[in-house]
């Protein structure tokens, strides 16, 4: 099993690496196209700003590499948002793997933006959530969210109800941080590696 974490100009790569170590998995952090394409599983993490991240990926041709991967890919947080079609964050055209668009939280009703903390995920419909109870709590940090759509495999409410996970073909995305979501997060990472 060769696990690759895509290296780019977004944070939390180290956290993902350590989380994998905690569940007994080793991963390679790389931006090398050949290594990414040859991996068994690919994790596309990210904390940061959408337009800067997309620009970085395009400059290095990583946008085409990611879209071309045939093995299972898991986008995390910004990684998932970049896999969507478009983000309102600085009017950014994204990878277009998922049809959903990424919108900014309105903050209506006095809700603080970004959402920071533990919220539950429900209506779980994917082997990614095997053994994960409905309404399990996961850790979120985000000011933007992917709308609900055909590819939604988990929902979460924060003012709006949004896609806390998406799936299309070999591509999976989660808005929360499994690497920081205690036992529920570890189970989801294991499921991605072992089941999918």
């Amino acid at each position: 099993m060769k696990l690759v974490i895509i290296k780019y100009n977004a944070g939390n790569i180290q956290s993902v690496l350590y989380a994998l170590e905690r569940i007994g998995r080793e991963a390679v952090v790389t931006d090398d196209a050949a290594q990414i394409v040859a991996a068994d599983k690919v994790i596309f993490p990210g904390v940061g700003e959408a337009s800067t991240a997309m620009e970085y990926l395009r400059e290095r041709g990583l946008d085409a590499v990611i879209k071309g991967v045939r093995q299972p890919v898991l986008g995390i947080c910004l990684g998932m948002q970049l896999m969507c079609s478009y983000s309102e964050e600085n009017d950014t055209t994204c990878l277009g793997i998922f049809e959903e668009k990424v919108r900014k939280f309105s903050g209506e009703g006095g809700l603080k933006v970004p959402q920071i903390g533990w919220n539950n995920i429900y209506d779980l419909r994917s082997p990614l959530f095997e053994g994960v109870a409905d309404k399990s709590y996961c850790y979120f940090v985000h000011g933007y969210y992917a709308a609900l759509g055909e590819q939604t495999i988990a929902r979460t409410g924060y003012g709006e109800t949004f896609s806390s996970a998406l799936h299309r073909d070999n591509f999976y995305g989660v808005q929360f941080h499994p690497e920081k979501s205690a036992q529920a997060g570890e189970r989801i990472l294991r499921n991605f590696i072992d089941l999918i």
């Binding site: 180290q14 989380a19 905690r22 941080h177 205690a182 036992q183």
Partner: peptide, 8 residues
């Protein structure tokens, strides 16, 4: 700490 802790 980062190696041993699974919360933020």
């Amino acid at each position: 700490i980062a190696h041993h802790i699974n919360i933020p």
